[in-house]
């Protein structure tokens, strides 16, 4: 899977996992901060993204500080997945 394909896939998975019903994948910019005002995400969403990485990609992320880096944007998530699988 190319990085572009992974980013598209992740956007759909994030929308589903975090119940972002009114958001279209195109509205999420790959490079933009996920945890900004726009999507209204909070600490529980961050924990749910950890489950997403585990369930979908077999990647365990136990360190909350590492999480901040990985979940900065969809692109950083994709980079992390590509580097670790």
């Amino acid at each position: 899977m190319t990085k572009e394909e992974l980013i598209t896939k992740l956007k759909l998975e994030i929308i589903e996992a975090l119940n972002l019903e009114d958001i279209e994948p195109e509205e999420i910019e790959a490079k933009e901060a996920l945890f900004n005002e726009g999507l209204g995400l909070d600490s529980i969403d961050a924990l749910e993204l950890i489950v997403l990485l585990d369930k979908g990609y077999g990647l365990k992320l136990d360190d909350a500080n590492k999480g901040k880096e990985v979940f900065y944007s969809v692109e950083s998530m994709a980079d992390y997945i590509l580097a670790h699988s």
């Binding site: 969403d45 924990l47 489950v51």
Partner: peptide, 9 residues
């Protein structure tokens, strides 16, 4: 087994 924090809360 993937406990969901957003459901648990």
């Amino acid at each position: 087994y993937y406990p969901s924090p957003s459901v648990f809360v």
